[in-house]
Design a protein around this nucleic acid. Sequence first.
DNA 1: CCCTAGGGATAGGGTTAC
DNA 2: TGTAACCCTATCCCTAGG
Lengths: 104, 104
Amino acid sequence: MGNPKQKWTSEEEEALRAGVAKHGAGKWKNIQRDPEFNHLLFARSNIDLKDKWRNLSVASGQGARDKSKTPKAKINPADTPATPLLTAQTSTPLFHHPKMHQQM
Amino acid sequence: MGNPKQKWTSEEEEALRAGVAKHGAGKWKNIQRDPEFNHLLFARSNIDLKDKWRNLSVASGQGARDKSKTPKAKINPADTPATPLLTAQTSTPLFHHPKMHQQM
DNA sequence: CCCTAGGGATAGGGTTAC
DNA sequence: TGTAACCCTATCCCTAGG
């Protein structure tokens, strides 16, 4: 595909913060159109601003996520094969439900 | 730890290749949902498909053959990389048109 | 018709097991 | 050590509601 995934720069993020401080959160189109920030946000759509703000909110204290590199005891993602059931299954694994990131 | 780490079978890999050929790379969820491939990929998530495709591409040497993957930490012990300064001073990316969620 | 809010999915980085 | 499989996060896409 042609999506190099444009990461947000510090300048863009600052412009977004300033824009929110000036116009208020939710006024994405207004912020994007503001000549004061359009210099830095011309490459972002109002939707992008919204998404970035959402991400910033989560990263700001919302989630007390411990970024420590201490995986300690990672809980088993799937059912723990505590029982090495030797049932007849050569190629077909058990009903190993995937992580189900998103499945409707 | 006891991570099952299900290795990909040839059938799954073939299904993935066929799925990509049919739906295109990037449409992982679509491939996984396809009744034609769900038979073999029901135990894999869309994320798994993406990851497997990435590993497949690397193994095929599609990407960069060079394994110098920009070490996060410093690698140059004493030698100075003769990397000429790129003219890329401004962080102005190419005119990447935003998805234009504004004016249609 | 335009814009915002939210959910869903993808791309890439980083970590762990073998 | 190197590779495969896995997990996490940022960004992008789609749809519903105002």
